[in-house]
Nucleic acid binder design. Structure first.
Length: 610
DNA sequence: TATCGTAG
C-alpha cells in the first residue's frame, strides 16, 4: 500500500502521481482551502520520516496557507461519478442533514488522493456501512481499504473520529506493521504505550487506559493481540501459535517410504550425512538440514529427492527454486500465495523440501506445515532472514532435530574475497566498471542489495548491457542475446513453461494474437553462460519460451536476496553507501551471503560514504 | 518511482 506523496513543481502540485494546478488565493477573503490541512499533515509525516534522497521536493507546511486547489473540478468529477453510480442503482442518497457534508468531504478526499477504486467501492456500500466509515475513517485502514496515512488524512480533515478507541487501534496496528517491517514479530506493551503517547500526543496514563480498553475488547478483525506483555499483529499471532503447535508433533504419519531406504555410498563423502538425515526423517516429521555457504546442502537435497519417492522440492525465492531443478517451485507458487495469504491446503507428497528456509516467516511456515506430512527445512541461520518479520528458522533450529554439514565444497582453495573500499558510490561505480572489463570473458555475476539508485540492479543492468552487449535492440530496451531473468511464473494451457527465477538469453521477438513476446532460450539448470553452451534440447522449460516483456528483467546484476543459494566463478558484490539505505539494512547476514557467492573469487566493492 | 521476497 502506498502513502500520500506530495510534491510541488512550479505552479503544479503532484499528489500520488496526479497533477493539480495551484491557485493563489487572497488572504483577505478569509477563504480556507478545504484541503490545506491534509496536505500539511501529509508533509509533516513525510518530514518526520526524513526525506531519504534529500531531493527536497516536498514543500513546507507553512507555505500551503496561500495555496488552494481547483476543487470545483474535483467536485464536478465526484458528482459525475456519483450520478453514474446512481444511474446504475449502486448508490443510495437518503442522507440525513448532517451527513452530506461529511460525505462530500470524504468523497472529495478519496478522489483527490487518487483512490478511485476505494471511492467506487465506498459508493456501492449500504448507507449504514457508509455512515460507519464516515464516522471513523480509520476503518478504511483497519479493514484494509486504505493505507494508514490516507485514513489519517481523512480523519484529520473531517474532524472525526467519534469513537476514539478505533483511532488507538489503528495507530497501534500501524506501529506493529512498522515494527514488522523492521523484523520484529511483536513489541512489548510498554513500547506500544510510548509510541502511542508520542504519535497521539497523549499523556501516558491516558494511553495506558486506552490499552486496557483494547486488552479487554473482543478479538475481531484486524485488531492487535495482547499476550504475555507482548503485542502482535493478529495474523502473526495466530499463525505463529498454530505453527508452534504443529511443530511440536514429532512422529510422522505411518509411511514406510522413508524407513526402508538403503543408501548406497556415492563416494562423495557425504553419505554419512545423508544417512543421518534419512534416519532423522524416519523418526521425525520435521528435520532441519543446515550448514554454512557452500557446504553442499543443495547437492544433498537433490540426492535425497532422487531417493525418496514423491518428494517435492521448493524454495523461498524463485531463483533458489529454479536452481533446485526443473520440478522445484517456490513455496508460494505451490501453496497458492495471494493477497489473503496461502489458499492451499495439502500437497500430495511424501516429503516436502524447503530450501533457503532462513527466509521463512510464520505465514510460510504455517502453510508448509499444513501442506506436507514430512518436511526438510534447509538453510543457514546466518544467512538472510525473511523480508518482514523475524527469522522463524533461527527459532526452529533450537527445537527441531538438526543435521549439520560442516565441510565446505564451494571454495576449493579456501574462500577468496577481495574488498575494495571507495568513499563515494560514484567511485565504486568506476571501480566496478574497470573490474568488469577484466571479468568480461569469465563466468561472473554482479549482486547488490537494492534495485534503485546508481548501485542498484536497474541502473547497473542498463550500464552492463550498454557496455557488454552491442547487439541490436529487439524490444523496448532489451537487446538480442541479453541475459534475462523471468520474474513471474508463466503458464501455457495450465502448464508451467517458465518459472520465476529462470535465467536465459533473449533470442528474438514473436507475435501471437497481436501481442509481442520476447523469445527466451533456457539452458538446463538455468545457469546460462552467454557465449558457450547454447543447446536447447530437453523439455519446454529448458527450451525456448515466449515471455511478455514485463515479466523479464536484465540479469547481469541481481539482488543479494535472489542470489542467495546461487554461485558462479566470479562474483562482484556491491555494498552501497549505508546512509542511502535504511540504517540497518546491510546486515551481517547480507554481507555473509554476498561474499560467499564466488567459487573462484568474490570482489566486494563498498561505498564507505566517507 | 520501493529496501529486500512471494502471487496472478
Amino acid at each position: 500500500m502506498q502513502g500520500l506523496v506530495v510534491e510541488r513543481q512550479n505552479n503544479k502540485i503532484r499528489i500520488n502521481s496526479r497533477t493539480w494546478i495551484i491557485e493563489k488565493k487572497e488572504r483577505e477573503n478569509n477563504y480556507t482551502p478545504p484541503l490545506v490541512e491534509s496536505q500539511a499533515i501529509a508533509v509533516k509525516d513525510k518530514e518526520k520520516r526524513g526525506s531519504k534522497n534529500g531531493k527536497g521536493n516536498l514543500y513546507l507546511a507553512g507555505r500551503t496557507e496561500i495555496l488552494s486547489l481547483n476543487l470545483e473540478r474535483i467536485y464536478r468529477n465526484v458528482i459525475k461519478h456519483t450520478e453514474k453510480l446512481k444511474g446504475e442503482g449502486k448508490l443510495e442518497t437518503s442522507l440525513t442533514d448532517n451527513e452530506p457534508l461529511l460525505m462530500k468531504d470524504t468523497l472529495v478526499l478519496l478522489y483527490y488522493m487518487g483512490r478511485k477504486a476505494v471511492l467506487k467501492k465506498f459508493l456501492s456500500w449500504k448507507l449504514k456501512k457508509q455512515v460507519k466509515y464516515l464516522s471513523n475513517p480509520y476503518l478504511f485502514y483497519l479493514n484494509k481499504h486504505l493505507d494508514f496515512h490516507s485514513s489519517k488524512v481523512i480523519s484529520m480533515r473531517t474532524q472525526t473520529p467519534m469513537a476514539p478507541i478505533l483511532t488507538v487501534y489503528a495507530y497501534a496496528y500501524h506501529i506493529l506493521e512498522e515494527a514488522y517491517k523492521n523484523g520484529r514479530e511483536s513489541i512489548t506493551e510498554n513500547h506500544l504505550m510510548f509510541e502511542l503517547a508520542e504519535m497521539l500526543d497523549m499523556e501516558e496514563d491516558k494511553v495506558e487506559g486506552e490499552i486496557e480498553i483494547m486488552k479487554a475488547g473482543k478479538i475481531s478483525g484486524n485488531m492487535p493481540i495482547f499476550d504475555g506483555g507482548y503485542v502482535y499483529l493478529p495474523w502473526v499471532y495466530f499463525l505463529r501459535k498454530s505453527a508452534l503447535k504443529m511443530l511440536a508433533e514429532v512422529k510422522p504419519d505411518s509411511n514406510g517410504a522413508v524407513n526402508e531406504i538403503v543408501l548406497p555410498d556415492n563416494g562423495n563423502g557425504d553419505s554419512k550425512k545423508a544417512h543421518e538425515l534419512l534416519s532423522q526423517l524416519a523418526a521425525n516429521k520435521y528435520t532441519i538440514l543446515t550448514g554454512g555457504p557452500g557446504t553442499g546442502k543443495t547437492t544433498l537435497l537433490e540426492r535425497i529427492a532422487g531417493i525418496i519417492p514423491n518428494t517435492q522440492l521448493s524454495a523461498l525465492t524463485g531463483k533458489a527454486a529454479q536452481r533446485l531443478g526443473e520440478d522445484a517451485r517456490t513455496v508460494h507458487s505451490l501453496l497458492g500465495f495471494g493477497p489473503r495469504g496461502f489458499s492451499k491446503k495439502e500437497l500430495d507428497c511424501n516429503l516436502l523440501i524447503v530450501d533457503e528456509a532462513s527466509m521463512m516467516n510464520w505465514r510460510t511456515l504455517h502453510a508448509v506445515l499444513l501442506a506436507s506430512p514430512r518436511i526438510i527445512f534447509s538453510g543457514d541461520p546466518e544467512q538472510l532472514p525473511p523480508v518482514g518479520g523475524e527469522s522463524v528458522f533461527k527459532k526452529m533450529i533450537e527445537t527441531l532435530p538438526v543435521v549439520k554439514l560442516d565441510k565446505t565444497w564451494r571454495f576449493k582453495n579456501g574462500l577468496c574475497v577481495e574488498t575494495i573500499k571507495k568513499e563515494t558510490e560514484k567511485e565504486v561505480f568506476v571501480a566496478l566498471s574497470n573490474l568488469l572489463t577484466a571479468l568480461k570473458h569469465k563466468d561472473f555475476q554482479v549482486i547488490t542489495p537494492i534495485h534503485g539508485g546508481l548501485l542498484g540492479t536497474r541502473y547497473l543492468n542498463t550500464y552492463i548491457q550498454g557496455s557488454f552487449n552491442p547487439s541490436p535492440v529487439i524490444l523496448d530496451n532489451l537487446r538480442y542475446k541479453d541475459r534475462v531473468i523471468v520474474t513471474r511464473n508463466i503458464y501455457l494451457d495450465g502448464e508451467l513453461i517458465a518459472a520465476n527465477g529462470q535465467v536465459g538469453i533473449a533470442e528474438g521477438v514473436d507475435t501471437v494474437e497481436g501481442n509481442i513476446y520476447v523469445c527466451v532460450g533456457f539452458q538446463r539448470n538455468g545457469s546460462y553462460n552467454g557465449s558457450h553452451n547454447s543447446s536447447h534440447n530437453g523439455s519446454q522449460r529448458n527450451g525456448r519460451v515466449l515471455v511478455d516483456r514485463k515479466d523479464l528483467e536484465l540479469a547481469y546484476a541481481l539482488t543479494v536476496h535472489k542470489y542467495q543459494g546461487s554461485e558462479c566463478d566470479y562474483v562482484v558484490f556491491i555494498i552501497p553507501d549505508r546512509k542511502k539505505v535504511r540504517e540497518d539494512f546491510i546486515t551481517d547476514e547480507m554481507v555473509l551471503v554476498g561474499k560467499t557467492r564466488g567459487r573462484m573469487k568474490t570482489y566486494v566493492l563498498e561505498a564507505t560514504g566517507g
